[in-house]
């Protein structure tokens, strides 16, 4: 039975499911779970945190914490960790989590690691493995000292989702001196496109000239929206004016390495391959069974993208 603190990330009053997944999982493994929530007006999250498994809930509620700044949030988390002294401080490896945790770890002069893709309880200690060299290998993290807490961020979808063992939900309010915070949050901007950039998206769906028009790319966009994916294009499609140059994937465009790359109506000539062949999983949809793209695809469908992609979209809807 370890004392496990979990940073329960919230933005705009909504808890991240990746965080609540960790809480449930730790709880279901028999540990005492303490959720740490930082923000403004966050007390309303008490119910949700209790039902996903938090035995204790540490609130740091302050107007300075309404919007994330690294400095203010790390001061808040440091204060809570110092006061609660857990064995582990876990967080989801989200943009906020991966930024925040290291400040706290170094302040506590305590071991830390990040982006674990495999986590397993061995009694009260946690065994973690993580990808290295852009996922070309994995390694186990060995913690050298006996310091605590150990700070670990975990990649989303690593621990099983949900779980319905509620915790005791005992809350504590912490007040933190944030008067020395010099950083200011100046606001948020929605990105120019609601979709992620091809280079950073986990899933990329690309179209070639066979889409025949800019309008037809909507077929791919529908699927992309479902998956939170980016939409890319081959050079031929960009040349034909169907997509802007910033979406071009290839030797003279962007080089991408997503977890999933779906190539629709793209033949897979080397100039395109050079931009996406390191993708973890490649799906090819093309009417030409001899198209070179099938040489690198993990899964290939010889077919008309105008039939296959909408059908695929429907099928994905069923599992989302």
């Amino acid at each position: 039975m370890a004392n496990v603190s979990v940073f329960a990330e919230q933005r705009d009053g909504k808890l991240k499911s990746a965080s609540t997944d960790i809480i449930s999982w730790a709880k279901s493994n028999g540990h005492t779970v303490s959720a740490v929530v930082i923000g403004k007006g966050i007390k309303s999250l008490e119910g949700e945190l209790k039902s996903c498994g938090a035995d204790k809930i540490q609130f740091v509620d302050d107007s300075t914490l309404e919007v994330y700044t690294p400095q203010a949030y790390s001061e808040a988390l440091i204060s809570v960790v110092k006061n609660t002294n857990p064995d582990y401080l876990l967080a989801a490896h989200t943009p906020m989590g991966r930024d925040l945790v290291p400040y706290v770890a170094m302040e506590m002069e305590s071991s830390s690691t990040s982006d674990c893709t495999s986590v397993e309880w061995n009694g009260d200690s946690l065994k973690c493995r993580r990808p290295v060299f852009s996922g070309k290998a994995t390694a186990e993290v060995e913690f050298i000292g006996n310091d605590k807490p150990k700070f670990i961020t975990i990649r989303a979808n690593t621990v099983p989702a949900g779980g319905d063992r509620p915790g005791e939900g005992v809350t504590t309010d912490h007040s933190v001196d944030l008067s020395n915070v010099t950083q200011k949050a100046l606001g948020m901007e929605k990105g120019s496109s609601a979709r992620p950039d091809v280079t950073e998206a986990a899933i990329v769906i690309s179209g070639g000239r066979s889409l025949k028009s800019a309008e037809n790319f909507k077929i791919l966009e529908k699927l992309a929206d479902l998956l939170g994916a980016a939409v890319g294009a081959s050079r031929a499609a960009v040349d034909a004016g169907f997509r802007p140059h910033r979406d071009q994937v290839g030797q003279t465009g962007k080089v991408v390495s997503p977890s999933l790359y779906i190539a629709c109506g793209i033949s897979g000539a080397i100039q395109h391959l050079a931009g996406m062949r390191t993708s973890k999983c490649i799906v090819a949809i093309n009417t030409d069974p001899e198209a070179p793209i099938f040489q690198v695809a993990d899964y290939g469908i010889v077919g008309d993208l105008f039939e296959v992609v909408p059908a695929l979209t429907e099928e994905i809807k069923k599992i989302r």
Partner: peptide
């Protein structure tokens, strides 16, 4: 404070396969 040990290569990728059948099955 930390060491990486137990390096492993990921399981070798299965060779790609073409999925047959009609569109719905595929």
């Amino acid at each position: 404070m930390v060491r990486l040990v137990g390096f492993d290569l990921p399981p070798t990728k299965q060779p790609g396969r073409k999925i047959d059948g009609d569109v719905a099955t595929q």
